[in-house]
Amino acid sequence: MPERTIDFGKYGAQGIKGFEAVARQLDALADFIASPVTTRRGLLARLHYLTRTSRARAAAREAGLTVTDRTLKAWLAGTRNPTQRNLTRIDTAYRAVRRQNVARYLLARLNREGRGTRVEIHPLNQSGVRPPHQRVVEFRTLNIRRWGAIVEAWAAGNDQALDDAWIEQIVDLGSQWGQYEYVTNVGFAA
């Protein structure tokens, strides 16, 4: 079995870690608010999402948004504006809470009662690699039936656990799995 890549890009290959591509796709499926937090509409949408229930408020505080209720009311009323640092905290807290809220739903959709979801793996970009150093890599598909560890790590924002869960799944590609640790894209729909 191949080992993990140590010196990626040494010969000019381009790509991202597979787990990062999976996280991007899961983020797209989570359907985050499209308006940026810097706009009034985006800020209000995030604040309403984070403050509409006591459970959401507790999750927002746990995710790092620790301001008083008076400050939140002033932001919602528009009498005060959050600082850039607080805007970052609001967006980070919103994404963390949204991930936690949709994780169970996404898991059910991706597992599809044991049938799993077909994943398309687009190999790394070797256009900058000289021909003697190029590998033969091709587009691959894989049906993942157990998404629990991947979705749990994504919802928690734990990159190391997500990487480990992703590697555990792509080992099913056989002896070539190491060629797909770095990819240009990973695509799936739920």
Rank of each mutant, 00 (worst) to 15 (best):
I150G: 09
A189Y: 04
R46H: 06
F139V: 14
L29P: 00
R24L: 13
Q25S: 13
K17W: 12
V37H: 02
T88Q: 08
R41Q: 14
Y94G: 02
A93G: 07
H122V: 15
V129W: 10
R80C: 00
L50R: 08
A161T: 02
A56I: 03
G174D: 09
W75T: 03
T88P: 00
P131Y: 12
L72S: 01
D69E: 07
L65A: 07
F188Y: 07
N86H: 13
W154H: 09
L44V: 11
R115W: 02
N143Y: 06
L173M: 09
A190P: 14
R89Q: 13
G114R: 08
R24F: 06
V136Q: 15
R99T: 02
Y49W: 08
A56R: 14
K17H: 09
P132K: 12
H48W: 05
N101S: 08
T5V: 15
F32K: 04
L76N: 01
L124M: 13
T141C: 06
Q160D: 15
Y105T: 13
N158K: 12
L162M: 11
V137G: 12
K73I: 01
T51E: 04
T83N: 05
F188C: 07
G116R: 06
I16S: 05
R145E: 14
A56M: 08
Y105P: 00
A58L: 10
I167W: 10
F8E: 04
E120K: 11
R46W: 05
R24N: 10
P132Y: 13
T66F: 00
W177T: 03
A56Y: 05
G174R: 07
E20G: 00
V22Y: 09
M1L: 12
G12C: 04
G174T: 09
T51S: 14
D69W: 00
G174V: 02
R140Y: 13
V171D: 07
E120H: 13
R41C: 01
A30V: 01
R104F: 05
W177C: 02
E3C: 08
E181N: 01
F32M: 08
L106H: 08
P123C: 10
I144V: 15
P82T: 04
G78F: 01
H133M: 15
E152Y: 04
K17P: 05
R85P: 00
Q134I: 11
P131F: 11
L87D: 04
D27Q: 03
P2W: 12
L87Y: 04
Q100P: 00
L47R: 03
E3T: 15
A77E: 10
F8L: 07
Q169W: 02
A155K: 13
V151A: 11
A34Y: 05
G148P: 00
N185M: 03
N86M: 08
A161P: 03
D164R: 12
V136R: 14
R85K: 11
Q134A: 11
D31W: 00
V119W: 14
Y180E: 03
L107E: 12
G128I: 13
I167Y: 08
D7N: 15
A23D: 09
L43M: 07
L162K: 07
R135W: 10
E3Y: 10
E113I: 05
I33N: 04
L142M: 15
L106W: 03
R85I: 10
T83R: 12
G157Q: 09
R109F: 02
P36A: 05
L29I: 05
Q84F: 09
V137S: 14
R146Y: 14
R130N: 13
N143G: 10
L43H: 06
V102T: 09
A60T: 09
I6Y: 12
L110N: 02
A30E: 04
V102C: 05
